[in-house]
Simulated scan of single mutants.
Amino acid sequence: MPSDASNDSDSRALPQDWRARTQRSVVQLVGWVGAYVLLAGGSYACLARSVVGGVALAVLAGVVLVRVFILQHDCAHRSLFQRPLTNDRVGMVLGLLTLAPHAYWRAMHLVHHSSSGDLDRRGVGDIVTMTAREYLALKPSERLRYRLYRHPAVLLGVGPIFQFMLRFRMPGIVPKERGPERRSILVTNLALLAVHLAFLGLGDWPRWLGVHLLITQVAAGLGIWLFYVQHQVEQPYWVPRAQWSLKGSALQGSSHLRLPRALEWLFGAINLHHVHHLKPQVPNYLLRDYMEQHGLAEEGVKLGLRESLLAFRLKVYDEATGRMTGFPPVPAVQGRPPVTAAPSIEPSGHLGRLLTFSGEER
């Protein structure tokens, strides 16, 4: 688990030029949250008269919700505002819209930043990735679960709905001693319950549920695509813990997804992921400026839109070649070789869980 003293939890360690600018942050917050509420409400109202219009507005609301999540992501790094408490409170409110309990998600995400690319610490806040040797050592039923988990239909379809609508509702995924994280799940659940009860009593609940499901699917699917391509690359940075470094993880193991500027603006420059991992205290609206002024434009694992889609063919990490590959062929006769898997990959034995949680201190 991360501690508040971790180096990416407070923007005050940055030079003033790269710290959050309150006015810009407030404008983003009001603009994007307002746009989301208007589109979601418009979809609900329009759906009573036009299915096509209601669905179109719900899809737009889902796209805008991705940007709302980017704002929550900045709050998780305490980079949207200069005061940590302001970030935590705003992040909690945004979590009611994104369905991601803020304190819990923040804890997992900071572990991800401290361990991305570390072969000995995989699975917390990550897309679960096995080595080829680990995959071949699995039982047939375990290999099938892993194959299903890595299938694009699960990663972009079933998985996001499971993660955001079901798993994030379960306080039991957090150890009892982690009070703030458990409370964030409970508070989010109570707020969602209140909203649904309001529609049950005062509105058309089935129509609202349909809008809610469609918005969540669009937002979570887009979000998982963006998250997947940030580190799932053909020549990744995977090293044992003793060799791991923050700079190596950022510049050699994080993608530089080259998007049209309009999409980069829409997604809060999260495509410049190598810069974000190097300096997570920098708010989204300063990431491009930081990249250009510090000569980082040619750093990171460069991908285009086409390469980002082809990345879904990557399934396991081959330690022998240092590359991500498809599934390796399983020998016809195989005595399962001994293998020591990273304990955080699958602590409960269920690969169907999109994310895992541990009490590990950063």
Rank of each mutant, 00 (worst) to 15 (best):
L85G: 14
A153P: 10
L251I: 03
L97V: 12
L192T: 08
S25Q: 10
L39G: 02
A58N: 05
G179A: 09
L155M: 13
L97E: 07
G268V: 00
V128E: 14
L97K: 08
A100L: 14
I161P: 11
E299G: 08
V195M: 04
V211D: 00
S50H: 10
Q334H: 05
R288Y: 04
P331Y: 02
S9N: 13
Y146S: 13
G349K: 01
R306Q: 06
N271Q: 02
S308M: 04
R167Q: 07
V211L: 03
W205P: 03
M324E: 04
A220S: 11
P280Q: 05
R182D: 02
V233Y: 01
G54A: 05
G221I: 00
V26K: 05
A45M: 07
V301G: 05
P160N: 14
V55I: 11
Y146A: 11
L222K: 01
E292D: 15
G62W: 12
S245D: 02
V218R: 02
L272G: 01
V154L: 14
G322S: 10
S9F: 15
S114Q: 15
G203I: 03
G41W: 13
I161C: 09
E307C: 01
G53C: 13
Y228D: 03
E181Y: 06
T216R: 06
P84M: 14
M291S: 10
D74N: 07
A320K: 08
A5I: 13
V211Q: 00
L97I: 12
Q293S: 03
E134H: 09
A13R: 15
R122L: 12
R78D: 05
V90A: 08
R167W: 11
S255C: 01
E299I: 02
S254L: 00
L246S: 09
W32R: 06
L65F: 07
L226H: 11
S79T: 07
D318V: 01
I127R: 11
G125C: 07
H350V: 08
L14R: 15
H256T: 01
R121G: 11
P15F: 08
S79K: 06
G117S: 11
P171S: 03
L97H: 11
V158I: 12
D120N: 15
A250D: 00
S116C: 06
S114Y: 10
G352E: 02
I215V: 11
P280S: 06
V301W: 04
R313V: 03
T22F: 08
L192N: 05
V211F: 01
F168V: 03
L155Y: 12
M291Q: 09
L286G: 02
V66A: 09
S245Y: 00
L144F: 15
Q163C: 13
E177I: 04
V68I: 11
E319T: 09
R147H: 08
K279Y: 01
E298M: 06
K247C: 00
Y237W: 03
Q28C: 10
A103N: 14
G41E: 03
H294D: 06
I161Q: 13
S348E: 08
V64F: 14
A153G: 11
H77L: 05
